[in-house]
Write a protein that binds this DNA or RNA. Sequence first.
RNA 1: GCGCCUUUAGCUCAGCAGGAUAGAGCAGCAGCCUCCUAAGCUGCAGGUCAGAGGUUCAAAUCCUCUAAGGCGCGCCA
Length: 563
Amino acid sequence: MRFSEEFAAALYQVLKDDLPKEEIQQLIEKPKHAEHGDLAFPCFSLAKIQRMAPQSIAEQLSRAVQSPLFEKVEAAGGYVNAFLDKKYVTKLVLEEVMAKKEQYGTLHIGKGEVIAIDMSSPNIAKPFSMGHLRSTVIGQSLALLLAKGGYRPVKINHLGDWGTQFGKLIAAYKKWGDEQKVKEQPIKELLALYVKFHDEAERNPELEAQGRQWFKRLEDGDQEAVVLWEWFREESLKDFSRIYQLLNIEFDSYAGEAFYNDKMDRIVRRLEEKGLLTESEQAQVVLLAEEELPPCLIKKSDGATLYATRDLAAAFYRKETYHFAKSLYVVGGEQRLHFKQLTSVLRRMGESWADDLIHIPFGMMRKDGKKMSTRKGQVVLLEEVLQESIALAKKNIELKNPGLANKEEVARQVGVGAIVFNDLKNYRLNNIDFSLEDILRFEGETGPYVQYTHARACSILRKAGFHAEEKRTIVLSGEKEWEAVSLMMSFPEAIEKAINDFDPSRIAKHTIQLAQAFNKYYAEVKVLEEDEQQLSRLAFVSAVAQLLKEGLALLGIEAPDEM
RNA sequence: GCGCCUUUAGCUCAGCAGGAUAGAGCAGCAGCCUCCUAAGCUGCAGGUCAGAGGUUCAAAUCCUCUAAGGCGCGCCA
């Protein structure tokens, strides 16, 4: 934030001999309480250097620091507290937001580098569950944030479209399947078959063998198996695309696991050439004892490939295709070990970019304290939750704003926004216990709350016939606006932090705070009061609306002008 | 057994490259719509920051140990 740089510069003028500028900058903090001003400099570490009481150092500094930016600089409890000139800074900030428009907060830290993002990755022939939502929305938000930061994200949907589970599914279909039923309700029917297979397999272990057999046939290109696999895949994709449409998400690539079927030999050969493969219990592994990791399984004892093999092939393919600077994997935390192994193997292969693979883990979505399991049929279907949320949004609209023009579309935006926001507002690594009640809450710290705040702001602007294009001079004391203005000031900083920590929740929190600040303002100040400051207040409202919309947009959430 | 993650108000969580009095939301209670959308606002109440040591002028924040919960640990992905 440039105001803190100003403060640091002013302090540096006095402290030249004792502290470098960077260190001063680092020490500067934002006070928790408004009575301590907007910027604070603690003098405790200086007290050691100068061998003086922090209080008296603060006294001296506060007298020495001067800048038109500050209306007051005072010493308190060993701190130098600087109070920004609200009138002047409000004017500066609002004019900047209005001038830069959507470009406000845009950063150039990415320098056009490509960032690959492995995200969403639902499993074919299984329903899109609440569990997949996290990877999808976190990945989407990271992509948006990275783009805002000057990177070029490439979104890859690494579909789970290969593996033993398809053998099982084919076996189940051959045994109990009904073509007509599958055609009518593909995912539902396929899931039922899958669950039934696991049910029966508990009593009849013979089934497992049949499943493996069918998968082998599939891998060998057996016509019957391939046709069924393609059919299942097709139907699943149709299903998924409905959900992605609701969420308003698109991908740059749908290259799933099957895509790498013919790309693994090469990798295995390379591992062999480099002498990294070891036979162990009839399987081929890369030993990682030095890294204190368990061995990474490359080939099963029957010669079949595994997850790790596939991911290695994918890593190479992505490097060669996209020339990424970083390759992100938005995948649950339970796969930490796998990604450590992946990186280690690449490093052993001598790939300089091994450490550019970054696992972005997240906590689990659980139900009643337990992991959701597809096999046991204990899944909550995302689409059902989405529809329920949209229906509730619709109900609210009918209740509160029955005259609204495009109810269906707004209900979708709000209903979906509630779900996405609910997922992104908390720190990635927290486990989430699925609660329909929490998700369908539209009050408090929720997506609809922010959307509502935005709609209110838009409503004022509409009534006033405000046009953001017109240049205008801001004349506000900035007192009532201050909290919001202060947040607008730190918006670019929030984006940078979100990018550096791969943490969308930073933006969610910042946006919530701005909405809260504005709602307070709204309750206190009549914007449309006809006086000489009305235009300035409208400019303020317009800036708030813009940043609320932008904040939501960075989370992948739409912001209707009216709701 | 080993490794990783988590533990802050009744519930869900912020706050963590150490800094001043630990903050929100929900739930509870009490208020606010002749006024720009009450999906809102105001107030009250609610805390040994899991526990014990340590480092420091200063620890919810860093280190060590303990406890509880979760997730991993070779032929699933």
